[in-house]
């Protein structure tokens, strides 16, 4: 069985770069952080690229590096994040477009979730991974994925109800 070469890395990044950047952006919450984390993740993958089987799909491997990096970085920046989040929440204004308002609020609330819970929701509902695939990417059990997804959605629903109440929803 052959090993992956430099050309296959270029092809992979060209083909899957956008999708990985979007996943990273959703998990990080900030575009600049996402680009930096994606580069770091790809560099880590590039170090061991030659050891990957030529016939295997490298994306789960890269995705797992990405998820681990996001979670590690979130833990490191937890204090700063808490200071950032300590700002008073913006008062929701009545908007003629409730759907846009709802999605904006959803994304705000998604960013406030813990890094692991956020990663579960992104992998499950953005990447459309199965519970088993999500568990593999996160390095945890399927049961943990289920509980994290359920708690994450419940928290989003609870916060949405609170935030969108003034809008009459």
């Amino acid at each position: 069985m052959g090993r992956r070469d430099d050309r296959s890395f270029v092809e992979f990044v060209t083909e899957r770069g956008d999708a990985l950047l979007r996943t990273a952006a959703l998990m990080c919450g900030a575009r600049q952080d996402a680009e930096d984390i994606l580069q770091t993740a790809l560099e880590k993958a590039y170090r061991h690229w030659g050891r990957l089987e030529a016939g295997s799909d490298p994306e789960p491997y890269v995705r797992r590096i990405l998820v681990n990096l996001v979670i590690s970085r979130s833990r490191r920046w937890k204090v700063l994040r808490e200071i950032h989040m300590a700002r008073l929440p913006e008062t929701p204004a009545v908007s003629p477009n409730h759907a846009v308002e709802l999605r904006g609020t959803l994304m705000d609330e998604l960013r406030k979730l813990g890094p692991r819970q956020r990663a579960v929701l992104v992998l499950r509902f953005w990447e459309d991974l199965s519970e088993a695939e999500t568990a593999q990417a996160l390095g945890c059990s399927v049961g943990t994925v289920k509980s994290q997804a359920s708690r994450g959605l419940a928290r989003l629903r609870e916060r949405l109800d609170k935030n969108l109440a003034p809008l009459g929803r």
Partner: peptide
């Protein structure tokens, strides 16, 4: 949530 993420 899917739509919000796609928009984002």
């Amino acid at each position: 949530l899917r739509k919000a993420m796609a928009e984002q």
